Simulated assay, not measured.
Amino acid sequence: MRVVIAPDSFGGTLSAPQAAEAMAEGWRRVAADDQLRLIPLADGGTGFVDVLHTVLGGVLHSTRVTGPLHGAEVDASWLRVGKTAYLEMAQASGLHMVPPERRDPDAAKRAGSRGVGELILAAAADPEVSRIVVGLGGSANTDGGAGALAALGGTPLDADGAPLPEGGAALARCAALAAPPALPAGVELVLAGDVDNPLLGEHGAAAVFGPQKGADAAAVEELDAALGCYAKVLAAAVNLDAEELATAPGGGAAGGLGAALAAVGGRRVSGAGLVRELCGLDAALDAADLVLTGEGSFDFQSLRGKLITTVAEAAAVRGVPCLVLAGRVAVGRREAAAHGVQDAYSVAEHAGGVEASMADPAGTLADLAADIAGQWSGSR
């Protein structure tokens, strides 16, 4: 049996390559003669650069940029392959940089994205780079990308002309930008997004992703209103329609960074689709009997342009069954099937609870894969 193993990363526990190796280790326990092809993937979020470095080679460059909280600097890398630079915003303003115990309403309202703009400038300073691809996902910030655009010249100001502090909540007082933000001359910007949510509203950056960053109901409402204020100011500064900026698909990616970078000329593409193409997933599926994919949490957000649905839909076109192995599963069987998923399996459920699965993420994922191999290997 020919099995393609193509997972995303599992939150903060396993990288995509580690998850793929764990699935393969478990599968081989039961079906040692099966042919396994490991293709770790990413959809623009955490692990985007590492996956592409593994597949494409290229040269990694490291720089220091402003982190998401308190102005503390963090190390971030970008990858140059030919004339293209690949970077992921999560290396500059990732949720993993905020410990779970600090993910409270205050942190959700204050986290910023300035480091992402600094990372873009670092890549653009390379004279060989003419195209920058930014992976959007896994963010700590809900600032509408205001911090990133401040690094590109568009510092948000209050009614008195004073610069606003970092974070989304302060944008409620945004009255103007110091200058229209702009990319360095001669650079094409591509936005590899992981979701299609808009900037504002019930499906927007604050409402959908704010709670996982620590925002309670009051903070979500405050952030959404502040982002609405900022969107009007930004749209006026770059001569865009404010309503279009606020509702465009993908604008809510990475805490609203998707909308900000689109406003300065970024072109949105599917992050999962881009990695799928660069990693040769389609050719691998052409020769496969089964595909395994997965991520930390298979939930309703997974169905909005993230990696699992990209893999599953590509498999379905070819009549190849697609199985999801995830830390937790919160998608119904019918909903999953509508996106090409044959079955979805929870590591936590198989391991006897979340605590048990988190104590040994690779081992419990391998155990689940072994159990599934016993059900599926040789079935075709």
Results as ranks from 00 to 15, higher is better:
V238S: 01
D241A: 13
A253L: 02
V208K: 02
A253E: 06
G250L: 04
A215K: 00
H203T: 12
L164D: 06
A182R: 08
A226N: 11
A175Q: 08
G228D: 00
G167C: 09
A179H: 02
A192V: 06
A178R: 13
A225W: 11
P180Q: 03
A179W: 08
A207F: 12
A225G: 08
P180I: 06
A237S: 09
P211N: 03
A254Y: 01
G201P: 07
E243T: 14
L157W: 07
A176F: 10
P198L: 02
L171I: 12
P198S: 04
A159R: 15
N197P: 04
A178M: 11
L157P: 02
A207C: 12
A246H: 04
P156H: 09
G228T: 00
A236K: 12
A205P: 05
D216I: 14
P181G: 04
E243P: 10
V187C: 13
A176E: 06
A226S: 11
G256V: 05
G250F: 07
P163R: 12
L191F: 01
G167T: 01
A207I: 08
A235Q: 03
P211R: 12
V187Q: 13
G204P: 06
R173K: 14
A218H: 13
A248K: 09
D196T: 15
K232R: 15
V220D: 04
G256T: 01
V190G: 12
A226K: 12
V233S: 02
A206D: 03
